[in-house]
């Protein structure tokens, strides 16, 4: 059942990305190009998504278990560390360079677009590189592996 709701959520998420225009990198770059001809559409994508999701998160925040009985796993970290800021700056640079972020790149890949395939492969290599780096660091320090920060 949990897999079915996850599948439906992914499907609706993907439909939203397509309808919203997020899967088109030139539209994403039009949003980030505030010095040129600025296309504000993606602010409405984010605004619309936040308007709906904030209600759900207000409900979820008061629950210990989900409607299907699984534990609520909402991040609790509140500290601002260099990893959060440095990582986000890196992500933004990549987002601005190609116009893809993780979700839309997967949807564009499913449309059979070669540039999206190239992007997704490079992104997976980057994520695997991060995993190897983290494991190497943990084993070097002899520490127990830290749980993933934030768990987004």
């Amino acid at each position: 059942m949990l897999n079915l709701t996850a599948l439906l959520s992914g499907l609706v998420f993907g439909l939203g990305l397509i309808l919203g225009g997020m899967t088109n990198p030139s539209k994403v770059i039009g949003f980030l190009d505030v010095a040129g001809l600025w296309d504000p559409s993606l602010a409405l994508v984010m605004g619309g998504a936040i308007a709906v999701a904030s209600v759900a998160f207000a409900v979820a925040g008061r629950r210990v278990r989900s409607l299907l009985g699984s534990p609520m796993q909402i991040p609790t970290k509140r500290d601002l560390d260099p990893r959060l800021i440095g990582g986000s700056l890196m992500f933004g640079a990549g987002w601005g360079l190609a116009g893809f972020c993780p979700g839309p790149s997967l949807v564009a890949l499913a449309q059979g677009l070669m540039p999206a395939l190239l992007f997704v492969v490079a992104m997976l290599v980057g994520m695997l590189g991060y995993e190897l780096w983290t494991q190497f660091n943990n084993s070097n320090r002899g520490a127990t592996p830290r749980p993933a920060t934030g768990a987004h």
């Binding site: 949990l2 939203g16 559409s41 409405l44 605004g47 308007a51 709906v52 299907l68």
Partner: peptide, 21 residues
């Protein structure tokens, strides 16, 4: 269409947190 897409994304995020946590 962008607002509509955003509402769908919000709905999807709501489903995942409410059903799956």
């Amino acid at each position: 269409s962008s607002l509509g897409g955003g509402l769908l994304i919000g709905l999807a995020a709501s489903m995942l947190v409410l059903f799956n946590g």
